[in-house]
Amino acid sequence: MSQTNAAEINTDVVIIGAGPAGLFTVFELGLLDIKTHIIDILPRAGGQCSELYPEKPIYDIPGLPVVTGQGLTGNLMQQIEPFGPTFHFNEMVETLTSLGSQQAPSFRLTTDAGKIFNAKVVIVAAGGGSFQPKKPPIPEIAQYEGKSVFYAVRQMEDFRDKDVVIIGGGDSALDWTLNLQPIAKSLTLVHRRDAFRAAPHSVSAMQDLVANGKIAFKLGQITQVEGNQGQLTSALLKTNDGVIEKLSCQRLMPFFGLTMKLGPVADWGLNLNENLVPVDTEKFETSHPGIFAVGDINYYPGKLKLILSGFHEGALAAQKAHRYIYPDKKLLFQYTTSSTNLQKKLGVS
């Protein structure tokens, strides 16, 4: 084991991804007395179900004739509550390093928020990849990203006394317009149309700021940026009438929603097959002992990218995880219906 300092989190299992597969794996591990920390880049649980189709009905969850994406997520959260998993939202797992041996694996994970986890077992439940901001096709924008072009605000102070341009018409664009306006030197909101898909009170607050001359609103799109060494000096606006206007600015924030990118999973030394992680179908373990992959991210012959597959995979992975975490304990097969031991864990006995 490496040195552990107070800021580090030690746990049995880290689950990467809080989609349905990751969530149900918490349950299966919990029945086996295994504690979990679960990390997701999104601000909430549910993965694709809550991000892409919260209101849509799902018809093929066994025993639930119909449930929405959001409803299923809520049910899973309720189901795993007795096991008290610790959630770390808004954090992306960046590195995964192996420290232990084949028989006694151990791992160290770090997130983009600077947290460090030490775990005996890692479950990769990364689905279609991490949800990341969409980056607009503005030439050379990459050289400004993280310096003067941002897709999220990490430090408000960085926007103080700056000329800020925000692109978009959704909640993120409007929330940051309202939050940054008081500290920015100037703020221009650029959107393709004069309609907004955002909370009505944010829309009216923004419109008040425009009416009072506190911010500018422009109909059109940003097509080019100018500056040097990562520092923006201006952005070119093409208005809907085809007129080009130069907006002087030092900060630009585009808000075009999220897209799924495989992301850091590709850098962890796991075998990959067309962006999927091959596993066996007995334990759903990867080529690396102690690292399992469940849900949409894994691949094996016959794989179906369905929620129910992820549930089954999580249950079997948990059995093998138990052997790593409690090498001396024998695993008894038990039913939740009849085992008082399991019912005690579930808080129902």
Binding site: K134, P136, P137, G168, G169, G170, H191, R192, R193, A195, R197, F256, G257
Partner: peptide
């Protein structure tokens, strides 16, 4: 239309 706001 609302979703087109997220296209480029």
């Amino acid at each position: 239309e609302d979703m087109l706001d997220f296209a480029f």
